[in-house]
């Protein structure tokens, strides 16, 4: 376990030090959410109704676009090679990396969501509900994005390719995340139904993402 803990600590440190770009995700989230009303118009009633959707879309983009460098940096400086000679399974190693990434990028999004809810005329209860769904759903986004990060490393193409590969896979998470938020806001569904499905999707994504990413890395190494 120490090996994985060391990897986790290293990635958290890298994210919060100068040049790590740990806060960029939240900044991106803030800007996306701020831009929406400029396109939609400052109609508070409308913003309040589609607020959860805006927050979810912003969080989705912020989670996925920051994943681009997660594995690519380790590949460029040779760290990924050495990780293959480690004694912990590659699946757990990429999971530790994804967890560190979620902690430094995903969790700040969850914390920022209620604050951004104010901009979108969401009351405190609804903002809390959206934050709760994000807390349950953003790990799914990170682990689905991990597959794209691994594929883009092996294909040596980064950036938008990752988003193109991964975004279709995030559709279910988006559906049930927004559905749960809206259920808390207006009903008529009980909050628990979509929220439970969202949690299930997250658990599935953690397993599938981890194995798919490790497989992609193993097969793509040259």
């Amino acid at each position: 376990m120490t090996a994985l803990a060391a990897l986790f600590v290293r990635d958290v440190r890298l994210a919060i030090r100068v040049g790590g770009g740990g806060g960029i995700g939240v900044l991106f989230f803030l800007i996306v959410v701020t831009l929406m009303p400029f396109a939609i118009g400052p109609d508070l009633a409308l913003l309040g109704r589609i607020g959860p959707a805006i927050l979810w879309l912003g969080a989705l983009l912020a989670s996925l676009l920051t994943l681009d460098r997660l594995l690519a940096m380790d590949q460029e400086d040779g760290s990924l090679d050495l990780m293959l000679t480690g004694r912990s399974p590659l699946e757990l190693a990429v999971a530790a990396k994804a967890l560190a990434h979620w902690l430094t990028t995903g969790l700040p999004l969850v914390i920022a969501a209620p604050l951004l809810g104010l901009f979108l005329n969401l009351d405190l209860g609804s903002s809390g509900a959206v934050a709760l769904t994000l807390l349950a759903g953003t790990p799914a986004l990170t682990f689905i994005g991990l597959i794209g990060a691994a594929l883009s490393v092996t294909l040596r193409r980064g950036g938008l390719l990752l988003a193109v590969l991964v975004m279709p896979l995030t559709v279910p998470v988006l559906i049930f995340g927004v559905a749960a938020s809206n259920a808390a806001l207006v009903g008529p569904l009980p909050f628990g139904t979509p929220f439970t499905i969202l949690c299930a999707l997250t658990l599935i994504s953690i397993v599938v993402g981890t194995f798919a990413a490790a497989t992609a890395l193993r097969h793509g190494m040259e």
Binding site: G19, G21, G23, I24, L27, L30, I31
Partner: peptide, 13 residues
């Protein structure tokens, strides 16, 4: 937001 952008730039390099 622009202030935050400038600060992020300083932190990145």
């Amino acid at each position: 937001l622009m202030y935050l952008g400038v600060m992020a730039l300083w932190r990145t390099v």
